[in-house]
Design a protein around this nucleic acid. Structure first.
Length: 272
DNA sequence: CGCCAGGGGAGCT
DNA sequence: AGCTCCCCTGGC
């Protein structure tokens, strides 16, 4: 285990921010994160954060995964001080980071997210992992499940994932898995593309629209200019940005602002 | 029981 | 760009 003091990093906020559905708080207060086949436990102790892994794994994987080299103070300092709403939102979600999650996982996760709430999304994902993901053991011998591969989902009937509580989204996931295994869409290539190209490519997948594509671009490909607009963001735009969100000012990192707004809308004080 | 909303999307005009 | 319809759960 290693201890790190990292500014603008807060596990509770990241866990609740709704970008990572495989991070959860355990009964002992620690957080567990599953990423691909990996498992990590973390613990927040005030400003310090404990990573239960060795230095090599931290440096080569988790530091990148949690975007610890990102300069979040400068993102926040760039906020227009006259924009009290955004100032409040950022002050509330100061510890959020935009993670670098697996591309395939994010595609499936946000296919499932449509017309769905966060609690149920987590359950759906847990269900497909338990049913079709590889069974793994962490260092304490506890079982966890890797995310199902495209191949394992492509072979299913279109309605098979209804048993995992996906409802009508089942066929979106199965058909998308088939597109990937058939090579119609190349995930390796997408990960090398610019935001614009990657989004265009993702939109070819059945069930992927503007919002889902933007979430994938932001949370997997780390295109911070992606600004997913969902019902909550849409309402915030109507209330606070009737003339449109100032994209020009936050050019290149609008996605970070989106996360502050989203988190604030969901968990902030409702006296707005 | 009906109604509605939850981080939408497809298909059509 | 805007509209309709699609369609699954859970909460009230």
């Amino acid at each position: 285990m290693i201890k790190k003091t990292i500014g603008h990093f807060n596990l509770e906020q990241i866990c609740r921010s709704g970008q990572c559905f495989r991070m959860s708080q355990k009964e002992n207060g620690r957080y567990g994160v599953i990423a691909g086949k990996r498992y990590l436990e973390l613990e927040q102790q005030g400003k310090e954060c404990i990573f239960y892994c060795d230095e090599a794994e931290f440096e080569s994987f988790w530091k990148v995964y949690f975007d610890l080299d990102g300069d979040y103070p400068s993102y926040i300092e760039g906020i227009n001080s006259k924009d009290s709403y955004l100032m409040d939102a950022a002050a509330f979600g100061w510890g959020i980071r935009i993670l670098r999650q697996d591309l395939w996982e994010m595609i499936v996760s946000f296919l499932i997210s449509q017309q769905n709430n966060i609690v149920r999304i987590r359950r759906c994902i847990q269900n497909i992992c338990e049913s079709y993901g590889e069974e793994m053991k962490n260092s304490e011998g506890e079982t966890y499940y890797a995310f199902p591969t495209p191949e394992s989902l492509a072979s299913l009937e279109e309605d098979a994932l209804k048993e995992c509580n996906l409802g009508y989204r089942s066929k979106y996931v199965v058909r998308t898995a088939r597109s990937v295994t058939a090579g119609e869409v190349d995930l390796e290539k997408i990960s090398q593309m610019s935001y614009k190209e990657a989004k265009e490519e993702l939109l070819k997948l059945f069930g992927v629209g503007e919002k889902v594509a933007d979430c994938v671009c932001l949370f997997a490909l780390h295109h911070l200019e992606a600004f997913p607009i969902d019902t909550h963001i849409n309402q915030a735009m109507k209330r606070h940005y009737k003339k449109g969100f100032p994209n020009r000012r936050y050019k290149g990192y609008q996605g970070v602002m989106q996360q502050y707004i989203f988190y604030y809308e969901l968990f902030g004080n409702k006296q707005k």
